[in-house]
């Protein structure tokens, strides 16, 4: 059985697609068969972050409507052959997805892949509900910022009440906290919620902390998921996330600011 993992957040712009792309590549590099699905119907972006935007011919909605087969719509990643992408449609048809037809596609994909990563749209509307409905696990992506944390908590409520697992009374969705855009320096200065603060409030296990990093913008500019930038702090932090997802215990990095020398402290800078 494939593991269905939704990358969700409630709030937009916190790093869902960046994280989905990194996690997809990371798991595939470990030899797993992975498919990344963009659930953001009407606003597809996973293709851009993955660098395959010019290879999109058919999309998720075409498959749902029977206008294309899965084989036609799936885009094989050029870097890692065990990774495929199922892009969202660009035409806005908010009624395109429902539980039945999404369930059918996921079942088909489950026969071919080990991991199905669902990149959720922002918000708590139908699209976001569809992305989380069939999930076995959820990666709740959160910035250390009040509105993001609050929205993440709302999403946790949805995971516990509106998912298939909740409706059928099965074992609940396994929740993971992924804290992104973390700045240890600002935390030390008392300007940003700390990892412990967010863990305290949301009370779910921590999967990873991705530092605020210039590498993320560079990666999206180039369409090369940041995990491929193996020297970068964000790339290394995502690598740790993959190891933890696969059951390893890895110490958290990038949680403390680099110490300034005594001279720069005295003279500023």
């Amino acid at each position: 059985m494939a593991r269905i993992i939704v990358v969700t957040s409630g709030k937009g712009g916190v790093g869902k697609t960046t994280s989905s792309a990194a996690i997809g590549i990371g798991l595939a590099l470990k030899g797993h068969k992975v498919v990344l699905i963009d659930f953001d119907i009407g606003l597809r972006n996973l293709d851009l972050i993955m660098g395959c935007e010019r290879r999109v011919v058919y999309d998720f909605v075409n498959v749902i409507n029977g206008e294309a087969t899965l084989n036609q719509a799936l885009i094989k990643d050029k870097r890692v052959s065990s990774l495929s992408i199922l892009p969202a449609s660009q035409t806005r048809d908010k009624d395109a997805l429902n539980k039945e037809n999404v369930g059918r596609v996921l079942e088909d994909l489950g026969k071919r892949f080990d991991y199905i990563i669902c990149d959720s749209p922002a918000g708590i509307e139908a699209g976001a509900m569809m992305a989380l409905y069939y999930a076995d696990e959820a990666i709740v992506t959160t910035n250390p910022e009040v509105s993001s944390v609050r929205d993440s908590d709302r999403i946790l409520g949805m995971l516990a009440s509106r998912s298939r697992r909740a409706e059928l009374g099965l074992e609940p969705i396994k929740e993971h906290l992924l804290l992104t855009r973390y700045s240890p320096k600002r935390v030390e200065e008392g300007e940003m919620l700390s990892v412990e603060d967010v863990e305290d409030i949301l009370a779910i296990p921590l999967l990873g902390v991705i530092p605020e990093s210039q590498a993320v913008l560079k990666a999206s500019n180039a369409g090369e998921p940041v995990i491929l930038d193996v020297e970068s702090d964000a790339g290394k932090a995502y690598q740790d996330v993959i190891d933890r997802l696969l059951g390893e215990t890895v110490e958290f990095r990038f949680l403390v600011a680099e110490k300034k020398g005594i001279l720069s402290r005295l003279f500023g800078g």
Binding site: E145, V146, V149, R150, D153, R154, G157, S161, V187, E189, G190, E191, M192, L193, S194, D197, D200, I201
Partner: peptide
């Protein structure tokens, strides 16, 4: 450091999140 904005944020969040969970 006594009253940082981060600690204000945490306090406000704890209250609103508890309230919303209660309603839920």
């Amino acid at each position: 450091k006594q009253v940082t904005t981060a600690s204000k944020a945490k306090e406000r969040l704890q209250i609103i999140v508890a309230h919303e969970r209660n309603n839920r």
